[in-house]
Computed example of a mutant assay.
Amino acid sequence: MARRDIIVVGASAGGVEALKELVAGLPAGFPASLFVVCHFPAGARSVLPRILSRSGSLLATHAADGEEFNPGQVYVAPPNFHMLLAPGSRIRLSRGARENHHRPAIDPLFRSAARHYGARVIALVLSGALHDGTAGLMAVRAAGGVSLVQDPADAVIASMPENAIRLARVDHVIKLAELAPRLVELVQRNDAPDQVAKAMDPIERMNEIAARDMLRQANDGRRGEVSVLTCPECGGTLWQVDEAGILRFRCHVGHAYNGELLLSEQSEALEAALWTAVRTFKEKWVLASQFANHQRAGGDFEVAARYDEQAKQAAEFGDLIERHLLVGSPTGGVPPDGSPGTRAKG
């Protein structure tokens, strides 16, 4: 039998206080690694590792992409990155799509731990709203791991624990004050099966299904069926008309297109979306620069530097889209003053 030495924790509203109490109860030299996802605004500054390091005996840090994790340490997902566990005791950070409207989200961490570490995993859901973490708990249980949930009665926001209990059929529902001792007990048992079970959340199979359907559409294999395309006018799903020799599509409210017109509409929509991205990046450059100057005026040069970096990235990304995808100019770049480029459209 092996030790359960991978602990994944998900928290949202009200979760910081719960996390502080949890890590305060864990001893120095704790023989397991903790991985924490706490919902956090993308552009905000996270000081959660500093808070957790001061709360107990374990060192807490923001996770870095590709780093090797070790027992006795707490790894916190940085803002705007999913934290995933990879084989070989490695951490991966991803800017992949938001899940449950969050990045970082809890479910990606839980299911990556289940997939690669199986029965060695202990998963814990703390205070928070809505459903994030529920599907991840199910993946951990399916892989032979152990699932815990904070007792909703002492959670600041009870709905995330309540949904996990109702849908995931968790192994243990535990009051906050008893969570740390229970984790110590579970880690010390050495009762995890040696054979690591392979588990996959069904949502992960959707990538393969979507790719297969798109390929079938590209090969004209969905005549008379729902297509993978959407209506330019209302955004509804398009059905492909079942006839050979001509491509025609119709949405459920009646908008109809032949293939050439639909392709033209999509080209126009794509150009509009790219110009919208350029405009958004330029506005982000303006606002981030304004925040940087405001912080500098107040003497907070560290925060100003962070906003300067955001402004620099926004200027560069907007210029790349405009230069390479829209205008097509072989030259160009960010002007000497650092502002995004301005070029005539068309």
Rank of each mutant, 00 (worst) to 15 (best):
A129M: 15
I122C: 05
L19Q: 02
P108Y: 01
A32Q: 01
R45N: 04
A97I: 10
D107N: 15
F81M: 14
S53M: 09
S53N: 08
S53A: 11
F30N: 04
A113F: 09
I91C: 10
V23Y: 00
E67K: 07
G56H: 08
L26K: 00
P71M: 06
A2R: 03
D132Y: 09
N70A: 15
L85P: 09
V8I: 09
P104S: 08
V36A: 05
L52Y: 03
S33N: 05
H116V: 10
P79T: 10
G43Q: 09
G66A: 11
A2W: 03
P41M: 07
D5T: 08
A13V: 07
A18Y: 02
L85A: 12
E68Y: 13
L85W: 05
I7E: 04
L84F: 08
E21N: 14
K20N: 09
L109H: 02
L130C: 08
T134V: 15
G66K: 04
I7T: 07
L48W: 01
G14W: 00
A13I: 04
G14A: 06
F81K: 14
S46T: 10
S46R: 05
G15M: 04
G15Q: 04
H131A: 15
P104K: 02
G136N: 03
K20Y: 07
P87Y: 06
G25Q: 01
A44K: 02
F30D: 00
S33G: 15
H131S: 15
L130F: 12
P79I: 10
A32I: 01
R45W: 03
V8L: 05
P49Y: 00
D132C: 15
I6N: 00
E21P: 08
H102R: 13
G14P: 03
A24P: 04
A28G: 12
P27S: 03
A13M: 05
D5V: 12
A86I: 12
R50D: 15
T61K: 13
L59C: 11
S94A: 13
L85H: 02
N70S: 15
D5W: 10
C38W: 01
R111F: 13
G25I: 06
Q73C: 12
G25S: 04
S89D: 06
E17Y: 05
R98A: 14
A105W: 00
Y117T: 06
I122Y: 00
V8E: 05
R90T: 15
R115F: 09
Y75I: 14
G56T: 12
S94E: 06
